[in-house]
Design a protein around this nucleic acid. Structure first.
Length: 338
DNA sequence: TAAACGTGGAC
DNA sequence: TGTCCAAGTTT
């Protein structure tokens, strides 16, 4: 069996492959700055490229630079993130902008260690910013690299365990050179997205298949080792529909917690949940999260006593940041909010 | 270490 | 319809 390539040979082979077959037209690849790379990398966390593209364009128009984001209203920020999910990313992005303005005069630091101190920026994102914005050496391990390396080096074990994760970062450190930095990082992502895919990888067209340890031993389909899946519980939710003069009562969701920072129908906490007659019911909806399912009903109510929210007109609601299922429900039940 | 944290695309 | 899982980070 052929051994794995040296870091030098590996780098050159992938960069050469990506120059022909890689992605070069993504919006964030056109004029990369530390800020635009930062924004795109946060948006791309656990989110598909096709989903991010329009959000990225709108965000860069609304908040073209660090200062604009630092000075923006939080509701304005959240409304531009609505529908993208994992909303702490948006709040951390603004926190990061304020941190960089306050501590670094609005200029990004240059070193990996400093960049990793930015709120919401972990080891992967720090490496990506250094690679893509500065074209300097910044090792990365994301889902693409994890899959590619687990197969190429035939790494057994669940990747999220400390042992395997450490091994992956060791390979990343060893195989990331101080040359072709931007092109090499991008080639890893492109390989993971276009060749070394989760299902039906395109091994015949892989530029390094003859030295891939999994391919040589027919274990591509078994690597990376799948994570044992766990049962997702179903939670019951009750929300209040309080409408006066065609205005709707909404509350801002607290952090931490689901939908933090978004505006939502008031939700009864677990102790307040009660049986209700069908006549009180405005409607129901179901929603699936990554870690549980939500069965919800929306109850008609009149009083806003004890509640800390405010009324909004349909026109105001349209430009607010709302959770996706709540926005859908409101759109169905309140005029002029679609 | 494991759970929390959203949503939608792909099959 | 259900399942996987996508350029992860925080607590």
């Amino acid at each position: 069996m052929k051994d794995v390539l040296s870091p030098e040979h590996f780098n050159l082979t992938l960069v050469n492959w990506a120059s022909k077959y890689g992605r070069h037209d993504l919006p964030w690849q056109q004029h990369p700055t530390p800020y635009s790379v930062h924004v795109s990398e946060i948006m791309l966390q656990q989110t598909q490229v096709t989903t991010v593209i329009e959000y990225f364009k709108r965000w860069m128009s609304a908040f073209p630079n660090l200062l604009a984001l630092a000075n923006a209203d939080e509701d304005e920020v959240m409304s531009h993130w609505q529908g993208l999910g994992y909303y702490s990313r948006a709040r951390n992005l603004q926190k990061a902008a304020r941190y960089l303005v306050d501590e670094f005069s609005g200029h990004y630091p240059r070193t990996l260690k400093q960049i990793e101190q930015i709120p919401g920026v972990g080891r992967y994102t720090a490496g990506a910013i250094v690679s893509f914005a500065y074209n300097e050496r910044g090792p990365i391990v994301d889902g693409n690299v994890r899959r590619l390396f687990c197969r190429y080096f035939a790494i057994e074990g669940v990747p999220s365990t400390t042992e395997v994760n450490n091994k992956l970062w060791q390979y990343a450190e060893h195989y990331t050179l101080a040359k072709n930095c931007r092109a090499y990082a991008q080639s890893l992502l492109d390989m993971g997205a276009m060749i070394c895919t989760p299902k039906s990888p395109d091994c015949p067209n892989c530029p390094i298949n003859d030295s891939c340890q999994a391919y040589q031993t027919d274990r591509v389909a078994q690597l990376p080792t799948p994570k044992p899946k766990k049962h997702t519980p179903t939670k019951i939710g009750q929300f209040l529909w309080i409408e006066q003069n065609n205005q709707l009562y909404l509350q801002k969701r607290p952090a931490p917690g689901i939908w933090a920072g978004l505006w939502c129908l008031p939700q009864l906490d677990t102790e307040q949940i009660r049986e209700v007659a069908p006549s009180q019911r405005k409607g129901t909806f179901k929603h699936v999260f990554s870690h549980y399912k939500l069965d919800a009903e929306v109850l008609n109510a009149n009083s806003t006593e004890q509640l800390s929210g405010q009324f909004f007109s349909p026109k105001q609601i349209v430009s607010l940041g709302l959770p996706t299922p709540i926005r859908k429900f409101i759109g169905k039940h309140l005029a002029n909010t679609k």
